[in-house]
Computed example of a mutant assay.
Amino acid sequence: MRYPDSHKAQTRRRIVAMAALRFRAEGLAGVGIANLMADLGLTHGGFYAHFSGKDELVAAACGEAQRQMAEQWRPLLENSADGGCLAALADHYLSPAHRDFPDSGCAAAALAGEIARQDAGVRRAFAAGLGPLLAQLEDARRRDGAGPSPEASLAMMVGALLLARAVPDAELSQRFLDEARAALRAQGE
């Protein structure tokens, strides 16, 4: 049976989307290629028709996860009044839902520690994926007329989310989210 020309590209997109979800949920080391492909109803050997190895998949999945985060932020920025843009992004990012469901959230908060130990190509792809988020944070700062640098905003949000996920104390976890959100709101005013 011959597949249509678009089949290979569609299959690659499915693999990348599933990997983006699974890597954020389980970590890079927690996801094996054979299991990932089996979950998609594909063969382990078929993986190599799309990727040279796991590093290439990690790079693509990080880019996809960051693209998804930027897409989540897009309507928040579009629907925010000037003066409330950074607050809208911080409220979304520093939410209990984002803390509790890393599989659909930001790859930086879910994977940065592991990405730091990857080869330079994976780290470059990860950094490139941050570009749209930093651009959106710069747009928020411009529209708000004040606020921290995009890098400082992203670092505060990612750090607070990482800590909120790491601690077993529910009250402390919530304080990390609340205090970072309040600090970003105050700096954006």
Results as ranks from 00 to 15, higher is better:
Arg2Gln: 15
Asp5His: 07
Asp5Tyr: 02
Ser6Trp: 02
Gln10Thr: 13
Gln10Pro: 00
Gln10Ile: 13
Thr11Trp: 03
Thr11Phe: 04
Arg12Glu: 10
Arg13Cys: 01
Val16His: 01
Ala17Lys: 07
Ala17Leu: 08
Met18Glu: 14
Arg22Tyr: 09
Glu26Asp: 15
Gly27Ser: 06
Ala29Cys: 09
Ala29Trp: 01
Val31Gln: 07
Ala34Tyr: 08
Leu36Lys: 03
Ala38Leu: 06
Asp39Cys: 01
Leu40Cys: 02
Gly41Asn: 00
Gly41Ala: 10
Leu42Thr: 01
Thr43Glu: 13
His44Thr: 05
Gly45Leu: 13
Gly45Tyr: 04
Gly46Ser: 00
Gly46Pro: 00
Gly46Met: 03
Gly46Asn: 11
Tyr48Phe: 14
Tyr48Glu: 12
His50Asn: 04
His50Phe: 07
Phe51Lys: 03
Ser52Gly: 09
Gly53Tyr: 08
Glu56Trp: 02
Ala59Asn: 09
Ala61Asp: 14
Ala65Arg: 08
Ala65Asn: 06
Gln66Pro: 02
Met69Glu: 08
Gln72Ile: 03
Pro75Asn: 08
Leu76Ser: 09
Leu77Glu: 01
Leu77His: 06
Asn79Gly: 12
Ala81Glu: 12
Ala81Ile: 04
Ala81Asp: 13
Asp82Gly: 02
Gly83Pro: 03
Gly83Ile: 09
Cys85Asn: 11
Leu86Tyr: 01
Leu86Ala: 02
Ala87Met: 10
Leu89Gly: 05
Leu89Asp: 04
Ala90Ile: 05
Ala90Met: 12
Ala90Ser: 15
Asp91Phe: 06
Tyr93Val: 04
Leu94Cys: 11
Leu94Ser: 12
Leu94Trp: 08
Pro96Lys: 01
His98Glu: 15
Arg99His: 02
Phe101Lys: 07
Ser104Pro: 00
Gly105Arg: 01
Gly105Gln: 07
Cys106Gly: 06
Cys106Asn: 12
Ala109Ile: 06
Ala110Thr: 07
Ala110Gln: 03
Leu111Glu: 06
Ala112Tyr: 05
Gly113Asp: 13
Gly113Ser: 11
Glu114Asp: 09
Glu114Ser: 03
Ile115Asn: 03
Ile115Val: 14
Ala116Gly: 11
Arg117Asn: 03
Arg117Trp: 01
Gln118Asp: 00
Gln118Cys: 15
Ala120Thr: 14
Arg123Glu: 00
Arg124Tyr: 11
Phe126His: 01
Ala127Phe: 04
Gly129Pro: 06
Gly131Leu: 11
Leu133Phe: 02
Ala135Met: 09
Gln136Met: 13
Gln136Thr: 06
Glu138Gly: 08
Asp139Leu: 15
Asp139Thr: 15
Ala140Gln: 10
Arg141Met: 00
Arg141Leu: 02
Arg143Thr: 13
Arg143Asn: 02
Pro148Asn: 13
Pro148Thr: 05
Pro150Lys: 05
Pro150Phe: 00
Pro150Asn: 10
Glu151Thr: 01
Ala152Arg: 15
Ala152Lys: 14
Ser153Lys: 04
Ser153His: 08
Ser153Trp: 10
Leu154His: 14
Ala155Ser: 15
Met157Val: 03
Gly159Arg: 05
Gly159Asp: 09
Arg165His: 08
Ala166Arg: 05
Ala166Tyr: 07
Val167Asp: 00
Val167Gly: 05
Val167Tyr: 11
Val167Phe: 14
Pro168Asn: 03
Asp169His: 07
Asp169Met: 14
Ala170Glu: 15
Glu171Cys: 03
Gln174Ala: 15
Phe176Asp: 07
Asp178Leu: 12
Asp178Cys: 01
Glu179Gln: 10
Glu179Ile: 13
Ala180Trp: 04
Gln187Phe: 12
